[in-house]
């Protein structure tokens, strides 16, 4: 809500540089019902220190008083990983070698997205105390959720690295920068969704429950525990089926992560007589890159829309809470 109007600094700068030292340039802030998106983004940027503090607060508070501290944050993702591994890798015996790495490379991304969106949706309501009493760009609260999820993503990545070293799986070093872009896009998507949903949740409190259900289904729409190429692609007979599948932006992002981390477009199964089978789509690197560039644009656009929605709804937060 704080607006830095560039107009304000012009009289001061007109005085010349030597005068500027003694007169502190005053910031101008306009409190009104409308504010443009670039201004909002700028406000978020000027408050990055607060964002950092909120993230560290979140993590401190969450694991305060527990002996194992941050380790607890790993328990739940580890459990999911183990369950999927046992169910799909051991019991159902899918033919994906190094299934743990395959699974982990997609799950990692999903956990980030899932945790980010879910915690962000409820955050404005959960922090109504602050929202009602202190002025700061409220989007920061949502971003702090995504940031916190990002911290957990970092720890999970460390575990993934250990797994990869132990199993001797190397990522595609050349494409590794792409993986960071993918993470960034996921963060953008999660922010966009979180910003819009957190504002809507103020007015419709069961949004938080709804999104939980949606995310549970969404998970299966991503090729995380199964292989898109071997198990789904062959069954798509119409273009629209494939189109529908890839309307889910998380699907190509998960595929990218698998392509970079799991790094095995062709897998030669050990059983005799079988020729190489494709676990990952046999796309060229450029295909993945263009997917990601497209999604970067799309998710930026979504973020913009989310900020507009948030801006419209934000005016009444303090009274609705």
């Amino acid at each position: 809500m704080a607006t830095d109007a560039s107009a304000s600094s012009s009289p001061a700068s007109a005085l010349g540089e030597n005068v500027q030292a003694e007169a502190r340039v005053k910031k101008t802030r306009v409190v009104s019902a409308r504010m443009s998106i670039p201004q909002r983004l700028k406000n978020i940027w000027t408050n990055r220190e607060l964002l950092r503090n909120l993230i560290s607060t979140e993590i401190k508070v969450k694991y305060k008083g527990s002996a194992l501290g941050l380790l607890w944050s790993m328990v739940s993702p580890a459990m999911t990983l183990i369950i999927y591994y046992v169910v799909f890798g051991v019991i159902l015996k899918n033919s994906i070698p190094h299934f743990v790495i395959y699974l982990f490379s997609g799950l990692l991304l999903w956990n980030f997205f899932n945790l980010g969106v879910q915690s962000a949706t409820g955050i404005i309501v959960a922090r109504s105390g602050i929202v009602k009493k202190v002025a700061f760009p409220r989007e920061i609260l949502v971003l702090s959720c995504i940031g916190t999820a990002g911290v957990f993503l970092f720890f999970q990545s460390l575990v993934l690295i250990i797994f990869m070293v132990v199993l001797g799986v190397a990522p595609d070093w050349q494409l590794l920068p792409l993986w960071f872009l993918t993470l960034f896009i996921v963060a953008l998507l999660a922010s966009a969704l979180g910003i819009a949903l957190s504002a809507i949740n103020v007015y419709m409190r069961d949004m938080a429950h709804l999104i939980e259900v949606i995310l549970a289904a969404w998970f299966w729409a991503c090729p995380i525990v199964y292989s898109f190429w071997t198990q789904l692609h062959a069954r798509f007979h119409h273009a629209w089926e494939s189109w529908l599948y890839f309307a889910n932006p998380m699907a190509p992002l998960v595929l990218t992560s698998q392509r970079v981390i799991y790094n095995a477009p062709y897998v030669h199964l050990t059983s005799a007589g079988n020729k190489g089978e494709q676990i990952l789509p046999p796309w060229r690197a450029t295909t993945y890159i263009s997917w990601n560039v497209e999604l970067l644009v799309v998710s930026s656009l979504l973020l913009w829309i989310a900020l507009v929605i948030f801006g419209r709804l934000e005016g009444n937060f303090a009274e609705e809470l």
Binding site: K27, T28, R29, V30, V31, S32, A33, A135, A318
Partner: peptide, 15 residues
Amino acid sequence: CGVLQPTSGQIVVQG
């Protein structure tokens, strides 16, 4: 302070 937004009108704060 900017916690609430006015329904109409505006407030300009310098500093």
